[in-house]
Design a protein around this nucleic acid. Structure first.
Length: 605
RNA sequence: GGCUCCGUGGCUCAACUGUAUAGAGCAUCUGACUACGGAUCAGAAGGUUACAGGUUAGAAUCCUGUCGGAGUCACCA
């Protein structure tokens, strides 16, 4: 077998077991105790016979023999010490060890017996994860999709590892950008509302944001045409001046401005709620920048008193990070208003105090790596011990074939449109295949949503979060191969077998003593067996991709088994029951893994 | 320009953080439904892991340099 997903032996049962075995063998052979580091275990390469492999090079100094001789000695010793070790073979410096099938059957029995196999509850940390963090001047786009899916899946994975997780969203609901939409609506809107136009609120507001930009460009070019140079002209654009006036009014809490702001934001929130709900992500708490943007000022004063920050002649406050290889950073403007990082400093402190959390995770694009580096450093300089517990889950940009998305150039991929496209493609395909014809429209719709969204979510989550990824709207809509629907299909097919078994009143056992199982079946058991450490690894690396690759491997392995062997038609009763038990467990593992990714699996498709 | 990250078959992604012949999927070609579901499976072809050195028994992985790409260095957020 092969592992496309190659699990790291991170606190695994198997690695520890192997190390214990080998340590004893080495002790008995050479009279010396060796460290875990010297006992290097890996999963046996697919082209060789065996389950686990010992790399003997690190042990040569202890054995004082050739690699082959050492490996053979250890292999022979292991075989005599442990009956569950069936055979071994040596290739160069590699000792391949093969376990007897009863060993693997026992592993499967243990896994089946434990309903929460791989999951742990309690004993974890209290964490907070912030994700999504949209602006209220335009709808969510592809970049947010990656952010939302990552945040939601990582929260699930951390919870499955026993942590208690608070999911929060920080909505950027104030500033010039929203004033631009507001101004354009005032000027050109003629009172248009989501109700009057039938448009989704966030899309409606987004249109006015674009409308503002057109107007700005038009006025700017008119001024330049009038013979004024560009730099000067930029300061004279009437709509720009009006926007700044509006922002001043907002900060002064001018009633009319606040009313408009609240009205338009409420449209946007209704739109966001719909998108989040369609996407299947949720939050425990939503913060609004309009309520938090003033926080952090007290920290600035504290820093000034401690001498960590300094004031320039114009009254602006700075921190000097040149000693840490960075620049000077502004914390308070000369007019004493705060900037982005001031607010982040304040909210971080608030959250730590309010929720008593041990770790704060920010799901934010890697374009803000510098920002978070600075944020952490400043909090350290202020003397907060928890500064180290801040973790920036930095993910790569989603690029289109044409390059980076640019909202002004209209190359953004809208989240709602994208989801709709995926779902309608799934619907078209289902119709073509005709497998759902006997279902009601509501049921068909539900299945097609699962498939369309499953394809999208899996496509995005299977990529290592850290990496920049490419999204081709045409080519990415694929339902064959390494995709979400492939995995969903495997699940649906197992379900079909289980349904039939149920109809035949077959009781699927919880234990098996079946002796004559095949290599293929052992491969599947090995994958099931490795789930607990996979889940731990995914949490350690904050990477849903680890789970995605795992579940793909188990689905692929099962499909091969399915084609090669009979399950319900198997004549040997014991073998039939074993295969049903194995199939059921695979279905459970697929369902649970996909659930971690926020992907539902259909019983039929 | 300084700092950070990245470069793996035509394309999209893996590779247990140093280990055996670098794996999948898509696309291309060839096969498999009177079968428990063909959104599947079997097979073929496709690679000097950007390049050049170095460390090691062993390098896609670690170090140095070169080339190429991305991000960031705002009294924006």
């Amino acid at each position: 077998m092969f592992f496309n997903f190659a699990p790291k032996f991170y606190e695994t049962g198997m690695e520890k077991l192997m190390q214990t075995y080998i340590r004893l063998a080495v002790e008995q052979l050479y009279g010396t105790t060796v460290t875990d580091k010297q006992i290097q275990i890996q999963i046996t390469n697919k082209d060789f016979e065996g389950d686990y492999t010992l790399v003997v090079f690190p042990l040569l100094r202890t054995s004082r023999k050739t690699p082959e001789a050492t490996a053979n000695e250890i292999g022979e010793k292991l075989k005599s010490l442990y009956p569950e070790i069936k055979s071994y073979n040596v290739i160069k410096g590699f000792l391949n060890i093969k376990f007897a099938s009863v060993f693997w059957i026992q592993r499967l029995n243990d896994a089946v017996e434990n309903e929460n196999f791989g999951f742990s509850y309690g004993n974890g940390k209290k964490l907070m994860i912030e994700y999504s963090s949209p602006n209220t001047n335009k709808p969510l786009h592809l970049g947010h999709v990656r952010n939302n899916l990552l945040g939601y899946a990582v929260a699930n994975i951390l919870e499955a590892n026993g942590n208690s997780v608070v999911k929060v969203n920080l909505v950027n609901d104030r500033g010039v950008h929203i004033c631009k939409s507001m101004l354009a609506w005032q000027k050109f809107g003629n009172g248009e509302t989501p109700e009057s136009s039938g448009k989704k609120g966030d899309h409606l507001v987004g249109e006015y944001y674009v409308r503002y930009d057109h107007e700005y460009k038009k006025q700017l070019s008119e001024i330049i045409a009038g013979g004024i140079d560009e730099e000067q002209a930029k300061r004279k654009v009437p709509v720009q001046i009006e926007v700044q006036e509006m922002l001043r009014k907002w900060e002064a809490k001018d009633a009319e401005t606040i009313d408009l702001w609240e009205k338009m934001n409420s449209w946007v929130y209704a739109g966001f709620d719909k998108t989040y709900s369609d996407m299947g992500v949720s939050f425990d708490k939503i913060y609004y920048e309009s309520q938090t943007y003033l926080s952090g000022k007290n920290l600035v004063n504290e820093g000034l008193n401690k001498g960590v920050f300094f004031k320039k002649e114009d009254g602006s406050v700075w921190v000097d990070l040149t000693g840490d290889g960075l620049d000077q950073k502004l914390l308070l403007r000369s007019d004493e208003t705060s900037v982005y990082i001031t607010q982040d400093l304040g909210t971080a402190q608030q959250r730590i105090d309010e929720y008593n959390i041990e770790q704060m995770i920010y799901v934010v694009g890697n374009e803000q790596n510098y920002h978070f580096q600075v944020l952490k450093l400043i909090l350290k300089k202020l003397g907060f011990a928890w500064a180290d517990s801040i973790y920036h889950l930095s993910y790569g940009m989603v690029e289109l074939p044409e390059g980076k998305m640019k909202s002004r150039e209209g190359t953004v991929v809208d989240a709602d449109d994208l989801m709709e496209l995926m779902i309608s493609t799934a619907r078209g395909m289902s119709k073509e295949l005709g497998k759902l014809d006997d279902l009601s429209d509501v049921e068909i719709d539900s299945v097609c949503r699962m498939i369309g969204l499953g394809a999208l979510k899996y496509f995005i989550l299977k990529v290592d979060p850290k990496k920049t990824m490419l999204f081709d709207p045409k080519e990415s809509i694929d339902f064959n191969g390494n995709t979400g629907p492939f995995i969903q299909y495997t699940y649906a097919r197992i379900n079909s077998i289980l349904r039939k078994a149920h109809e035949q009143q077959i009781q699927i056992p919880q234990k098996s003593q079946c002796a004559n199982i095949s290599e293929k079946e052992i491969s599947i058991i090995k994958l099931i067996n490795i789930f607990p450490e996979t889940l731990k690894l995914a949490a350690k690396e904050f990477s849903p991709a680890v789970i995605a690759n795992y579940v793909y491997d188990i689905a692929k392995e099962f499909n091969q088994f399915y084609h090669e062997y009979q399950i319900l038609r198997e004549e040997n009763e014991e073998l039939k029951l074993f295969r049903l038990m194995l199939s059921e467990k695979v279905a459970i593992m697929i369902k649970k893994s996909m659930k971690l990714l926020g992907i539902d699996v259909p019983d039929r498709m």
